[in-house]
Design a binder for these strands. Structure first.
Lengths: 133, 133
DNA sequence: TATCTGTTCTATTAGTAGTATAACAGACAA
DNA sequence: TTGTCTGTTATACTACTAATAGAACAGATA
């Protein structure tokens, strides 16, 4: 598995796990229909509690990233990428807004902000540059 | 004051307050040297606890947005906008990364993402479009 | 002296993050 | 049928954060 937890970080581990799975989907390492480990095996694998993994899976299901079948287990949603509906766009806007406000206060131009976005975008999709430390 | 709290939101009120002050600085409604209300008066004004306001001021001081003087009170940092040092850029990147990964999963192109950024950027700087609900 | 400022202390309530054990119900293979 | 895997639910506990509350201290100033 490609999961790397940072137990010392202030970011909750269930958020870390969730983000890494989403990034795995984004870079197509996890493709539609692919199996995900069971809650128990993944929990044992990365050394965290079953409930923590279950919480992540429930949220990913809720947001449409995965499907959960009683016996077969957990799979990446077979329909492929999600629709960028108004709901999603609005939540994205609300998350971007404080980042942009702070950027302005740090003398970052909108062009510099967009260049940064480009950079990270390529970094995510580049299969080589796995880790970001 | 231009502060509007949403007590029903899941976002902690100290985060809301902090973000609104930062956005006030970004849109230049709060200019270098300007006075901010005392912890007590602001707390009474928006109906929250003194300690909550104090926490926000301490963090804003720590991040260089404001100065706190024993008697004079709290002022917007007189040096103007902050430097976009490596430290800040790295923290911004870490916040942007999960947003971009999720955007990719929602079929958003990098260009659409950047258009969204443009839109919010203008929305912040536009003195008219105050609220974002 | 009285009053304002930020600051610090202690204490309480409520909620979240994470762990731990256990049990239930469905699926499936031996 | 039995055993074992799956997700799911329930309960309980610890630790931490968010928020409130009241009080007190120290410096500045009118």
């Amino acid at each position: 598995m490609f999961i790397k937890m940072d137990m010392a970080a202030d970011k909750p581990i269930y958020i870390q796990l969730k983000e890494q799975i989403i990034e795995g989907i984004a870079r197509k390492e996890l493709q539609p229909g692919d199996d995900l480990p069971s809650v128990r095996s993944l929990a044992a694998d990365i050394g965290i509690n079953v409930h923590t993994v279950n919480k992540v899976y429930q949220q990913l299901k809720q947001e449409g990233y995965i499907q959960i079948h009683r016996k077969r287990g957990v799979i990446i949603h077979p329909d492929g990428f999600l629709p960028a509906d108004e709901n999603y766009i609005n939540s994205l806007k609300e998350e971007l807004r404080p980042l942009l406000a702070a950027s302005i206060c740090h003398n970052l131009t909108i062009d510099e902000f967009k260049e940064l976005s480009d950079e990270i975008y390529l970094q995510i999709l580049n299969k080589e540059g796995e880790q970001h430390e």
